[in-house]
Amino acid sequence: MSAGHHHPIYRPADTPVHRLPPQCKLAAVVAFAVFVVATPRERFWAFAVDALLLAAVAAAARVPAGAIVRRMAVEVPFVLFALAIPLIGTGERVQVLGLSLSAPGLWAAWNILAKATLGVVASILLAATTEPRMMLLGAERLRLPRLLVQIATFMLRYLDVILDQMRRMRVARESRGFVARDLRQAPVLAKSAGALFIRSYERGERVHLAMLSRGYTGEMPTIRDISATGRDWAMAGMLPCLAAVTALLAWSTT
């Protein structure tokens, strides 16, 4: 019943991008995002170059454009915010299709849209080529706080278990005639959420007992360690390095 929820964002394949150690990819994406943000917004061509770089990575990883576009839905709230800025912005006005828009607002909107989109696409490519589990191992290798990585690891393991429990509770509610129509039903849902929290908390206690029973002393043993070679780093480093060069050129041509 609870079998088989895949994480559809990850696209299994065997490409050079998939094979790169996760810590290299994580570091590369973060560095890429930093250099994109550091690029002056007036240099349109620089962002086109960055986009081309990502397109090259996508091609190498065999991630189709359609999959990336569908995943870009997470960006929608930012897009809405960015679109609002030219309308509510102050300063010099320009006429576009009969609308009076703020010129600094347009620049700000473009800045947010371009940089956020590049960052989001880079993250989508990372997620599409790296298993969630590997991502966490990579984070551990990059010396992220171990406690945070452990919490994320447990979340990864128990998300489906908890969602399943939530689904069973919903079925139980609806089997007894409950329909969530408006706000008046909110107390029932709030109590369900409370019950789910308590159940999850109790499960946490049982899991802790199970861990103690197998010799846990407060420190997770490192079972899988993925090492990266200089070549891996060089390959992953190509993306942020090219983005850095682009940013530098963009600055020097002002």
Partner: peptide, 25 residues
């Protein structure tokens, strides 16, 4: 000790890591 609910017992992301947890400790 084998607990009643395997979801309590198997807390690692993969079977390999879970079975390795005890001996690694």
């Amino acid at each position: 000790l084998v607990f009643q609910d395997p979801d309590d017992q198997l807390f690692m992301p993969t079977v390999r890591e879970d079975v390795a947890f005890g001996p690694a400790n």
